[in-house]
Design a protein around this nucleic acid. Structure first.
Length: 234
DNA sequence: ACAGCATTAAACAAGG
DNA sequence: CCCTTGTTTAATGCTG
C-alpha cells in the first residue's frame, strides 16, 4: 500500500516506515520490531523488488522498493477482494471497534463506515468481528438489521444522549472474551438517519481517542485511493 | 495431524 | 563506531 501510494510507485524502506506510521497511528508508539518485519517481508516476498537509486536521488541510503509488475495485478486483486468482502457484509454497521486500553491504537486491518455524527466525520472500524450481541426488535432506537441508507438531502445536527441498555438486554449479551484483555469494545448501530454508538457503561472516551480515530480516517482515505487503483467498485 | 503461510525475533554483513 | 539497510534462519501461531 505504501509503495502504491507513492508518486513514483517506489519507496525506500524509510519511506515505507513513514507511510505506515502516518497511516496507522498504532505504529507510532509500537515497539520497533515491526520495522524488522517490513524488511523481512520485502526481502522474502517475491512480489517486491528493489532498484538502486539514481545519482540524483542520492539523499538517503538503501534501494528503492517497488511492486514487481508480474505480481502487481494479483496483489491489487487481493486488496480489492478483501475490501469488497467487508463492504458486502450486512453486519458492517455492527462491526466492533477494538481499542487497546493503553495506547488506544487501531488494528491493522480495518474497514470503514461513514458515521453521520454532527461533524460528518469518517471513523475507521476494525474488521475484527467478535460475537455481536442480539438486540430486541422492540427497542426503539437500536436495530441489528442491515443499515438503512441515509437520505442524501437530510442533514441536521443531533444532540447525542447516552442511552442505557435495559437489564434484560445486558443479560442476553454474552460476556466478551476480550473484556479482561485490556480492549474496549464498541458497537455502531444505525436506525433511520441516525447512528448510535454503544459503549460499555464504564467506558471513558476522551478527546485523544477521538483524535486517533480521525487520524485513522486519513489512513482509510489513503487505502481508498489504492482500492480505486485496484479496480474500484466498492 | 499436516502443510503452507504469515509474523516475529534474532544474527549477521555491508555501507553511509 | 553507530545506525540503517538487507538477507537469512528459526520459532511460533493460524488456517485450510
Amino acid at each position: 500500500m505504501a509503495i502504491e501510494d507513492s508518486l513514483d510507485k517506489r519507496l525506500p524502506v524509510k519511506g515505507i516506515y513513514e507511510w505506515i506510521v502516518k497511516s496507522f497511528p498504532y505504529y507510532r508508539a509500537a515497539p520497533g520490531g515491526w520495522r524488522n518485519s517490513v524488511r523481512h517481508n520485502l526481502s522474502l516476498n517475491k512480489s517486491f523488488r528493489r532498484i538502486h537509486r539514481e545519482k540524483g536521488q542520492s539523499v538517503g541510503k538503501g534501494s528503492l522498493w517497488y511492486v514487481c509488475p508480474e505480481y502487481r495485478p494479483a496483489l491489487l486483486e487481493v486488496l480489492r477482494k478483501s475490501h469488497y468482502c467487508h463492504k458486502t457484509n450486512n453486519n458492517l454497521y455492527n462491526k466492533p471497534l477494538l481499542l487497546e486500553g493503553g495506547d488506544l491504537g487501531a488494528a491493522m486491518e480495518c474497514d470503514t463506515v461513514e458515521i453521520s455524527d454532527s461533524l460528518s466525520q469518517t471513523l475507521l472500524l476494525s474488521s475484527l468481528s467478535p460475537p455481536t450481541p442480539t438486540l430486541p426488535s422492540e427497542h426503539p432506537t437500536l436495530s441489528s438489521d442491515p443499515p438503512c441508507p441515509l437520505p442524501p438531502d437530510h442533514e441536521e445536527l443531533v444532540t447525542m444522549e447516552a442511552v442505557e441498555l435495559q437489564e434484560e438486554i445486558a443479560e442476553e449479551v454474552e460476556k466478551d472474551p476480550l473484556a479482561d484483555s485490556g480492549y474496549i469494545e464498541f458497537h455502531y448501530y444505525q436506525y433511520h438517519q441516525y447512528q448510535y454508538l454503544v459503549l460499555p457503561g464504564e467506558t471513558e472516551l476522551d478527546l485523544e481517542t477521538v483524535e486517533i480515530l480521525q487520524l485513522d480516517a486519513e489512513a482509510q482515505e489513503a487505502a481508498g485511493s489504492l482500492l480505486d487503483l485496484a479496480g474500484g467498485g466498492h
